[in-house]
Design a protein around this nucleic acid. Structure first.
Lengths: 350, 350
DNA sequence: TGTAGATGCGCACACGTGTGCATTTGAGGA
DNA sequence: TCCTCAAATGCACACGTGTGCGCATCTACA
């Protein structure tokens, strides 16, 4: 007869808390379960008539594919791990927002891991492997080489964003810190300032250091000629409070800089507020300030900060395109470096 | 002999891109795979000697459990869906940050879904079901009752945060909008203002409307006595630009309010900047402003906004505790309503 | 020594999907 | 009518884990 293919022990009649499976659809449409699978995935040779009937049946029963089971079979899920921390950094949040959109757009789902404590970094990244992730984006922290090996062995692509990029086998996407530092220098020099400073978190991050070094390199000729002076500056945290505190200390000194480049916009905002409201300085007359990132607050009327813009959206799309190259295509990987252009946004703070 | 339990066809010797499975651990430790499973999950009666040997072997091989397979078996993953949108709203980001931490802390993982287009809401929420999520938190949009039924049927708990809470079977966690509206009214009245306004996005959200209504109710006695006046105000978007534009229009009129309560802090910041920098008004002398949320920017020196604080961390922990009640315990659910207290933060804008 | 109970462990099935291979069906030609 | 070829579809296994049930081993006691 041929209509006894399905064992009748799992009819799934009562509307209990199980989902509708492809077997239910198959039985209802009078075909084999494998035919349902082929209809949905699109490959295989199925007659148009059968395909229509199956799709209609699936729709009618409200069939939702079980991604867990599919991932099990494929030995690869459609999750992309996002390793991040410090959602207090508004640029990172903006980037994350676009990253999530971009990942969804190519049919994957973001699995966010927050690693606020650096010592949990390795453990958290290994956790991602437990979910058979298709790829990983690291926006915070520095994965150890040992961890990198695990991902290489499992053939899972990793993209580092605005990181040093020492990890073997991982792609790197950076904004153009060098151009940014140079543009900042030009802006401050054009404003006629002669005592420059670079303010960033003490110890510093990879990005911050790169920006500072490029800044110094750009003013080197004028330094050599004695035309301008340079003072390296430090703050305790890379946020508003860090900038504010640093401003109180630095700007209170008799011989304070009159033009400061900050490693991040938020630092610059704190610095500006300390200068204007606590020390009575005028911006940009007494103090010119340049930031980096162009977060939304920088364009607000109360700040109107001159800054180096890196587009969070472009950065996200670049990141995802790098990732997609490995996830969808054949395997292969490669320490490729992509650089995102930056742009000077002229406002009134410099 | 008894040492032929394992079919030798899947030895997994070469370090290819497969992970180490529990079968590998079992073979290496000389026990059955089920014994490994019992050792790791902790239940079952295993001799201390065997347990030690298995755990040590697992560690040595670098065994990582396959969560996909485990979820498959349990018919439930340890993912928690977070339905959100608009990561431009800083309070929501802050909340999300604490939410992710809290979810990780109880051993689950966040699966973030961004629903920027409301028309995709239903589809996106159904997508979550494909991942056998253990629970869902909705921080944006309003799920249709029909969608709610799907989750009830699948016995997946849903928590709505700062939403109307019309969804059958879903828990609701709100901040105390009523108390917030009342406190804002008291602050503006105490500042000696007589022409009050409530500024929020036109059309409004559930939370915004609740705040506005409570505000009006609180000033009702003075309205009745003619002591104060009230004007409802609207802006195009619930952000800085919306507040800024609305400020230009409203405050330019001859008979403008002198005390305005804003539905969100960001609106208040835009309003303040329009008043101070475009219209030359003094805050709080000419215009007193009160916001809602206490985002980090509000405490910055350039704004120093008087506002109603809702703790993002408390809200997140309350949300997760509600969720955990259903995820870990026996099933059962119930339209419970939790309210988070708010607090007036007095600064210089009112 | 025989029996009962307790303890430790292995067998085998289930979970829902994808896919290689075999089988069936239909059309067309000799 | 029989054979061939191709298209369509069903069978059965694999993926890695959890767990009910039964078997083996051991101890205690008559």
């Amino acid at each position: 007869m041929g209509d006894e293919q399905q064992r009748p022990d799992k009819i799934n009649t009562s509307p209990d808390h199980r989902g509708v499976t492809s077997a239910d659809v198959a039985r209802e449409a009078g075909v084999a379960r494998s035919t349902v699978s082929r209809c949905l995935s699109g490959d295989g040779r199925i007659s148009e008539e059968t395909r229509q009937r199956v799709l209609e049946t699936a729709e009618r029963l409200g069939y939702q594919i079980n991604q867990i089971a599919r991932s099990m079979n494929r030995r690869k899920s459609d999750l992309v791990g996002l390793v991040t921390s410090g959602l207090q950094d508004p640029f990172r949040v903006q980037f994350l927002h676009h990253l999530i959109s971009a990942i969804q757009k190519i049919g994957y789902r973001p699995l966010v891991i927050d690693v606020s404590e650096p010592e949990h970094m390795s453990r958290s990244m290994l956790h991602l492997l437990q979910y058979q992730v298709a790829g990983v984006v690291v926006t915070s922290g520095s994965p150890s080489p040992e961890i990198g090996q695990h991902f290489i062995r499992r053939n899972v692509p990793v993209v580092l964003v605005n990181r040093a990029g020492l990890l073997e086998g991982a792609d790197v996407v950076n904004c153009d810190n060098e151009a940014g530092g140079r543009l900042a220098a030009e802006a401050l020099l054009a404003a006629g300032k002669h005592h420059l400073g670079f303010l960033n978190m003490s110890g510093g991050t990879y990005s911050g250091n790169a920006r500072g070094e490029a800044f110094v390199a750009a003013i080197a000729p004028r330094l050599a000629s004695g035309e301008v002076r340079f003072t390296p500056l430090g703050c305790r945290s890379a946020d508003y409070d860090g900038g504010f505190q640093a401003g109180l200390e630095i700007l209170g000194r008799p011989d304070a800089p009159d033009g400061i480049f900050c490693g991040k916009d938020h630092i610059a905002l704190g610095l500006m507020d300390a200068a204007r409201f606590e020390l009575g300085l005028k911006v940009p007359q007494d103090l010119a300030v340049v930031g980096f990132d162009d977060i939304t607050a920088s364009s607000q009327r109360a700040y109107d900060l001159t800054t180096i813009r890196q587009s969070a959206q472009d950065l996200a799309e670049l990141t995802v395109s790098r990732l997609a190259r490995f996830m969808t295509g054949p395997d292969g990987r490669g320490m490729k470096r992509a650089v995102l252009p930056v742009e000077l946004i002229r406002r009134t703070s410099a």
